[in-house]
Amino acid sequence: MTIRHLRIFIEVADSGKMSVAASKLFISQPTVSQTIRELEEYYEVLLFERLCKRLHITPEGKKLLSYARKVVKQYDDLEEKMFSISGVNKIYIGATITVGNCLLSNIIQRIKENNPKIEPYAYVNNTSTIEERLLKSELDIALVEGKITNPNLICIPAVDDYLVLVCSKDHIFSKRKEVNLYDLQDMDFVMREKGSGTRQLFEDYLLDNGVTIKTRWETNCPGAMKSAIIEHQCLGVLSVRLVEEEIKNGEMKLISNPEFKWERNFSIVYHKDKIIDKTMEEVIEVIRRYKEIDILEKLY
């Protein structure tokens, strides 16, 4: 039995499905199944009951889960302390998908330039998943685009951003001088997946104004969103940072309307009980110093 066994067991217990656990851990489902089987054989207990295509943790499994979380946390703390003795300071940084695509690489590069002894680990997913990992202490800090509602998480607005409505150069809206809110009624859209901060902000706006759209594509990949807009004539709402190049080269058209500019912030998030050590302070300072380039003014 190893720490790896316990990490996989915890993920299966949290997700309730081996396929989901495999996807989150970037391993195969047979590997997950084999790991759970090895644990059950090692402890000679049944950890999960398989009912209606879902896993239900047994009382014995719950006991192991409680111990496993503590053991894994202590192991991670041990690793962190020992690496700090050798001069390497590991930090686990989360980012939502928009942030991961347009800012994260540059931020990590600046962190390394400022202090070569900091060794960042990056994890990219949507807002709800990042929030979950922060609560489980699987991430030290994150930069997110969505709303954080859990009272156990500190949320500090840090970087300005805008969402904009775009279409392809061949879309019926591309030649119109004016497009109003109610022109969007029943139009085909590509949308981010549920749990995305970008999607939540736009859906709240539509709901407040009583407008219904048709979601024809749903994806967590900005590249796939762009393809749906350019090649399949969908409308889309994305961070202006993600579509600057396509607007400049003429592949996309920014739909000009003051109502279709949604201001927001990318926020620094960490657990309220997290100890803000020197490494955390340096990472926070790099993010805070990330200067906003007013892309929107250049494109309108």
Rank of each mutant, 00 (worst) to 15 (best):
M1W: 12
I3F: 03
R7L: 13
M18S: 08
V20D: 10
S23M: 06
K24R: 11
I27N: 01
S28G: 13
T31D: 02
E38I: 10
E41W: 03
L47E: 04
F48P: 07
F48C: 10
E49A: 11
E49Q: 10
E60L: 03
G61Y: 00
L64M: 04
L65P: 01
R69W: 10
K73C: 05
D76L: 12
D76K: 08
D77N: 11
E79D: 11
K81N: 13
I85P: 00
I85S: 00
N89A: 00
K90Y: 05
C102H: 09
L104C: 01
I108W: 03
K112E: 13
K112A: 08
V124L: 00
R133Y: 13
R133M: 15
S137K: 12
L139I: 06
D140E: 14
V144L: 04
P151C: 11
L153P: 09
D160C: 07
C167P: 15
C167D: 12
K169E: 15
H171R: 04
F173R: 02
K175Q: 06
K175M: 04
K177D: 10
K177N: 07
N180W: 10
N180T: 13
L181V: 06
L181E: 12
D183K: 07
L184D: 01
L184S: 00
M187L: 15
F189A: 08
V190Q: 05
M191W: 07
K194S: 15
G195P: 07
L201H: 07
F202H: 04
E203N: 11
E203G: 04
E203K: 11
L206S: 01
D208W: 12
G210P: 08
T212E: 13
T212I: 14
K214S: 13
K214Y: 03
T215K: 11
T219R: 00
P222E: 02
G223K: 05
A228Y: 11
A228K: 07
I229F: 03
I230A: 07
Q233K: 15
V237E: 03
S239A: 06
N249S: 09
I255W: 08
P258W: 10
E259N: 15
R264N: 05
Y270N: 07
I276R: 00
T279I: 02
E282L: 13
E285N: 15
R289M: 09
K291W: 05
I295N: 01
E297Q: 09
